Simulated assay, not measured.
Amino acid sequence: MDTIQIKGINLHYEFYHLDNEKPVLVLLHGFLSSSFSFRRLIPILSKNYTILSVDLPPFGKSEKSIRFTYSYSNIASVVSELIRSFHFTKINLVGHSMGGQICLYMAKQEPALVDKLVLLCSSGYMKRMPKSLIYSSYLPYFHFIVKKKLAKQGVLHNLRNVVHNHELIDQEMIDGYTEPFLDNRIFMGLTRMIRHREGDLSSEELKQIKHPVLLIWGEQDRVVPISVGRRLHQDLPHSTFVSIKNTGHLVPEECPEKVATYIKNFI
């Protein structure tokens, strides 16, 4: 685990490297999450791949800056710069939920840097926030409203929404997903993300992505329904779609062995 400053922000990452001959996988987590969400997937994949898992700002242990621009395009460029700092010339991207959308932005911005993409219940077709909410985010102390809303939902409620089998939810999981929110600066970062997030790539933009893409979906996903995955499959010209039964949105936690097998076969 380490931290590096990229484009003025301290970026936290985990690096698992044993062999220069192993293909590189860059793991990008979802909204309100961190590299913690890959804790069951990384031990399996690190046997066959070099793994770089990134805490996307303002999440996880990365800096929660009040000066950073939290647009998808800027976050994607920061991750690309981190990859170049390792002198990697060709990498494979694995993105969960929001992280999947960041992967797509990277493929669009830096097509020569990316070999293949694996999208795990990726977000898709989300528009920019309403103008009324964007304007409201400039009100003094708006970040307290963000904090209050998230606190009202609670980590346990969110986990029950993203995990199909609630028996998987234990104290370790609850603590791991709670920890980043003990730093109040994350709510300032989320407020800025409300202003800066430009929305997901359009169908027209997706159709221009020529990389091979593997879409993996939980059939009981209540956050990003499987219909979104099928639509992405239609718009991404070189994509393969697979679904997993009795699985919700948090596929890296719920069925890491199956996900790892699909990734190995694809890469």
Rank of each mutant, 00 (worst) to 15 (best):
F86G: 11
G30Q: 03
S35F: 00
N74T: 06
S136I: 03
I194A: 07
S33F: 06
E110K: 01
I267H: 02
L206Y: 09
K90G: 04
I75L: 12
G218I: 04
L232P: 03
I174D: 00
L206H: 08
Y135W: 14
E205K: 06
H87W: 05
N10P: 06
M106N: 09
L11Y: 02
I83R: 03
Y138H: 13
I267C: 13
R67W: 02
Y70T: 02
M193W: 06
H249T: 14
Y70M: 07
Y72K: 06
N165F: 04
I44E: 12
N92Q: 03
F187E: 03
M173W: 08
E167N: 07
L93T: 03
L28I: 14
F181I: 12
P140G: 08
F38L: 09
I66A: 11
S71W: 05
F181M: 15
S73P: 00
L52R: 06
H87E: 14
S202T: 15
I209N: 00
Q208G: 09
I42D: 01
L182P: 03
Y125S: 02
Q234G: 04
F36V: 14
G100D: 05
S97I: 02
V114D: 00
A112E: 15
R67T: 09
L25P: 10
P212C: 08
G176R: 10
N92D: 03
T247S: 05
T261E: 08
I4G: 11
R195F: 07
H29L: 12
V79M: 04
Y16G: 05
P180L: 14
K210Q: 13
F59A: 00
L201M: 11
K264P: 04
K148M: 12
G124N: 11
L117P: 01
V242W: 00
W217K: 09
Q208L: 14
E219D: 13
F59D: 02
L119T: 08
V162R: 03
L28P: 11
S46P: 05
P43A: 09
I44A: 15
T69E: 09
L93A: 12
H164P: 02
S46K: 12
G199V: 14
C103A: 14
V26S: 01
E198G: 14
S97A: 15
Y16Q: 08
L215H: 06
I186H: 04
I66G: 05
V54M: 00
C255R: 13
F181L: 13
E219Q: 10
K210V: 09
N74M: 07
L27F: 15
Y177I: 07
K47P: 01
Q208E: 11
S227N: 04
T69L: 04
L11G: 10
N265H: 09
V24E: 04
Q101R: 06
V155T: 14
L236M: 09
I51R: 05
T191G: 03
V118T: 15
E257R: 12
L32S: 04
Y49W: 06
I169P: 02
L215V: 13
G218Y: 07
R160C: 12
G248I: 03
H233D: 04
K148L: 12
M129E: 12
H96M: 06
R67H: 07
E63L: 06
I174N: 00
P180H: 10
H164F: 15
H249W: 07
F59H: 07
M129F: 15
P140I: 02
